[in-house]
């Protein structure tokens, strides 16, 4: 830290989330994309001619192409990027999570300040045997979430965290 003032960097947290998360993210992105495609095509095919008296303005086609391609790029590239970024690690004293894909969000909290440990599972997540874990502190600005852990890992981690946090005293504010 002292040797070179600009060298301070955070090491990556140790663990990645479950590899099945990639498929899960891809499927949920695809569902979103299909909905968006449907709306776009419907607007292009029916709404635009109705508004502009049977003709489509010149800018309509480029916009259509963009609105069709952008979700495709999201479906193709987002899951891998996200899998590379999402990481987590718990030490006996602190928890560190990293999330995001274009914007990156790193969060660190000492376990002595943790208030609740929750795990949630959406319907689609259940299909992939995944589970998300949220650790909250007394600050509304600071919940730490680990998305898409393997279900069994998540269960074990919850047990571990509750044990560590219940041992600490004070009201954690």
């Amino acid at each position: 830290m002292i040797e070179a003032p600009d060298a301070a960097l955070l090491r990556d947290p140790l663990h990645q989330v479950s590899p099945r998360a990639v498929t899960y993210w891809r499927v949920s992105a695809l569902i979103g994309a299909v909905v968006e495609w449907a709306i776009t095509i419907a607007v292009y095919a029916f709404a635009l001619p109705a508004i502009f008296d049977g003709e489509r303005p010149r800018w309509a086609l480029p916009v259509l192409v963009f609105l069709l391609v952008a979700p495709l790029a999201h479906v193709l590239f987002m899951p891998q990027l996200r899998f590379r970024i999402h990481r987590w690690e718990v030490t006996p004293t602190a928890i560190h999570t990293r999330a995001g894909w274009l914007n990156i969000n790193s969060r660190v909290a000492p376990l002595s300040r943790v208030q609740t440990v929750d795990s949630t599972q959406g319907a689609l997540m259940r299909l992939f045997r995944l589970s998300s874990l949220t650790v909250t502190t007394a600050s509304a600005a600071g919940p730490l979430t680990i998305d898409c852990l393997d279900r069994d890992d998540a269960r074990q981690l919850v047990a571990e965290l509750t044990e560590i946090t219940s041992a600490s005293e004070g009201d954690a504010t």
Binding site: N103, I104, S106, R113
Partner: peptide, 14 residues
């Protein structure tokens, strides 16, 4: 009084 840190980097900030 600090109970955690968030380090946020947008794509431009990175």
């Amino acid at each position: 009084g600090i109970i955690g840190w968030v380090l946020h980097q947008s794509w431009f900030q990175r």
